[in-house]
């Protein structure tokens, strides 16, 4: 190295960019903003289209232009014939989703809590839970049904389908809780213990309120992932089918705006579930503040 290598200030002054840094960051903001809006449109446009078409008249088809505006298809959905009555599958899917949500929530909190300590086979435990995400759903469902057949267990939406759904929803809740516990300071629990709280009290009064957003998150994952699960349900649900299976069956038979009405109705249901959870979280936070 000779003496010319070091020239402070000169290197910076030499390159003058086309745009100054403020113009560049404005440009970046615009580009990223446009991308985001585009993405959101891409995500929501199908559902909007579907919802819009579900309000078409009795003679309306499944494409634009809409033939009149009515609640006809919602009425059809309501007083459906035996053949295509969506209400029982909807009810089953809803109950199943609630059960999955609660189970996922409890198991995720417990298993993530277990991961905070050290135990033999911890790594295996972690990967076995995550296997639920990696494994292809259709094959998991098929394999499960096969095992059930061999063992002589009859498949049903509220037994076998429930188990398979939880194996799918649990890893999402588990990862959510792991992420939340990762930021949780165990000193807070220790402080509670030294102040006279038992382990359970410390968990209830300190840990749980602080990780509550993750708990709600795992509830939501459990609900929404089970509610629209198709692949894993296909072989494990038995005779009384869930909503996604019913929709698929109907799609095979005949395509009417009634299906769009189902789509719109379920989306609204999911949004309501999220709203309810958010509201619950808000309420709990308020209650703690007293």
């Amino acid at each position: 190295m000779d003496g010319t290598a070091y020239a402070p200030g000169r290197a910076r002054a030499a390159r003058r960019p086309l745009l100054d840094h403020r113009a560049r960051s404005r440009l970046t903001a615009w580009v990223l903003g446009t991308l985001t809006v585009g993405f959101l449109l891409y995500q929501w446009l199908p559902i909007l289209t579907l919802s819009l078409l579900s309000f078409s008249g009795p003679t309306g088809g499944t494409t634009f232009p809409m033939n009149g505006v009515s609640l006809h298809w919602y009425r059809e959905l309501w007083d459906a014939s035996i053949m295509n009555d969506f209400k029982p599958p909807l009810g089953r899917s809803f109950v199943l989703a609630i059960a999955c949500a609660v189970t996922t929530c409890l198991l995720s909190v417990a298993s993530a809590q277990a991961m905070r300590g050290r135990f033999r086979g911890q790594g295996l435990f972690f990967y076995l839970i995550l296997l639920g995400i990696m494994a292809p759903g259709l094959l998991v469902g098929f394999g499960f049904a096969l095992v059930c057949r061999i063992l002589g267990i009859e498949t049903a939406w509220n037994t076998t389908a429930f188990l398979v759904h939880v194996s799918w929803t649990l890893p999402f809740g588990f990862l959510t809780m792991l992420a939340i516990f990762n930021r949780f300071d165990p000193k807070l629990e220790e402080a509670a213990l030294t102040l006279g709280a038992s382990r359970w009290t410390a968990f209830r009064r300190i840990t749980l309120p602080i990780v509550l957003p993750g708990v709600i998150g795992s509830l939501l994952f459990g609900f929404s992932l089970s509610y629209d699960e198709f692949a894993r349900s296909m072989f494990t649900t038995g005779a009384d089918i869930t909503l996604p299976l019913a929709v698929m069956a109907q799609l095979d038979r005949q395509l009417t705006p009634e299906l769009f009405a189902i789509g719109a109705a379920t989306t609204v249901t999911s949004l309501l579930a999220i709203l309810a959870c958010t509201f619950a979280l808000w309420g709990l936070r308020r209650a703690q503040r007293r």
């Binding site: 300071d185 000193k187 807070l188 220790e190 402080a191 509670a192 213990l193 030294t194 102040l195 006279g196 709280a197 038992s198 300190i206 309120p209 602080i210 936070r285 703690q288």
Partner: peptide, 18 residues
Amino acid sequence: PWRRDIAMMFQDFALFPH
């Protein structure tokens, strides 16, 4: 800990954030 006649102060105080 909860059956000992002690209290503890932690380095970063470990105040309950909620």
